[in-house]
Each structure stands twice: as C-alpha cells, then as structure tokens.
Amino acid sequence: MHKVIKAGWRPLLVIILLFIIWELSSTFFEIPSWLLPAPSEIWQEGVAGWPNYHHHIWSTIQLTVIGFSIGCIVGLMVAIALHLMPRVREAFYPLMILSQNIPIIVLAPLLVIWFGFGMMPKIIVITLVCFFPIAVSAVDGFRQTSQELIHYMKMAGASKGQIFLKLELPHALPSLFSGLKISATYSVMGAVISEWLGANRGIGVYMTLASSSFRTDRVFVAIFMIMILCMLFFLVIISLEKLFIKWRPKGEGNSK
C-alpha cells in the first residue's frame, strides 16, 4: 500500500490540480452549466442520479464482457491460424489490416440494417475493434520467438505442434497481453458506440439521452463512467498478466 502511494502521488496530484482549476474557472468565468458543468455539479449528479443510471452501467459491462471475450477468442484463433499457415497469412494479413480501416461509425448502422437491434450487431462491433490488437500482437509474439530456441527444439526432435505449444505460445504471452490491454479499453468504447445505434439500455443510451436534452452534467457522468470502466478492465488484464507471467525479470517491461 505504501508503495502504491509512493508511486501514485504524482499523477494523482496532477488530476486533483486539474479538477481544482476546472472548478475555480467555472465559478470565476461564470460558465453556464449546460455548456460546461463544474466538477462539483457532475459529482452531485453522479451521486444523486445513481438509481437512474446504474442499470445502464450494468448493461454496458455485460455487453463489454461478452464482446471482449468473443473478440479475444476470434483474435487468438485468427492469430494461430495465420501463424501456423504462412501462406494463409500472406493472403489474409492485408485484409485484416484493411478491416481496421473501415470506420466503425459508418459500419455500425449498416450492421443494424443487416442484423436488427438485438445483441448481434453490437457484439460484432466490439469483436471487430477487439480482435485486431490481439491478433496482431499474438502473431508478432509467435513470430519473434528466438530462432535459437526453435533450432534447439527442432534438433531435440520436437514436432510442429510441440514447438507451438511449448515454445511459441508461452513466448507470445507477454506480447499477447499488450494486445489484450489495448483491446480491453477499446471494448468499452466499442460497447458505448454500439449502444448509440439503438438500444434501450447502456451508457451509450444514457449519454445520447443526456446530450439531446442538454444535460451536460449527465454527459460528463457518462464520460467518467466510461473512463472508470476502462480502468477496471485494464486492471483485470494486468492482474491476469501478473498471474500468468511470473517469470519475467524485474524492471523489464513491468508496465504500470
């Protein structure tokens, strides 16, 4: 705990300072609260409005978890397939990158036209934003396996499957976790965007309702909720990383 305080006081101080400046300037310049509410107002709304929006949060969390899990599985399977079949990788890698150039905002309404207002188009959107960082990081992790260790395994008589399971897969884990961290935060965004399209619950819905009725304070509550959710997902991934990768020397890629 002491360590956390020691490492965390600088960023915390910056954030607190930022809020103080924000609070003071909104009273000092008399900014109307429909334009930019003061942090204190946002806090009040956040506390008082809890019964009105907590079901939205719950719904977004559900959507994110489902979408993220499917995205992970798809991303990992794509990565393994591309890695084990180099020809396929050559053929499909560019397509995979192209898939990320389609603006989600444009694609999302199309998905609603094709799949209706149910879970399906939303999960597709989240999967689409999630799978890419995971697939790319996993493929890179597999490919960067040290040639020396591969030689060793080959000369020791290991089969292709053994080389993959015992060498390439564990070797790719740190890289894979970098991808997971990016995907975890993207997946919350993906969930919120997909809720804009048409849903009856979720932070995205709450946000649209708030902004169309000029409840800027609620918009900010939604923004902070999204940030907190992203942080939570990120923390979950970091704890999983610590659980899975115990062997890493201290100070090397000890991301925080």
């Binding site: 260790l149 060793y152 000369m155 020791a156 290991a158 015992k166 564990p170």
Partner: peptide
C-alpha cells in the same frame, strides 16, 4: 533425422518461463 542427438547450443537456450 531430427531428435537423434542431444544438443546444447552456444548460448544456454533455456526457456525463460520455465523453472
């Protein structure tokens, strides 16, 4: 034919994630 001899390369080539 692979797997007929036991080989130790120049660098120890240990797997860092294994004890």
């Amino acid at each position: 034919k692979r797997g007929s001899i036991s080989y130790t390369p120049q660098s120890p080539s240990l797997f860092p994630w294994r004890t």
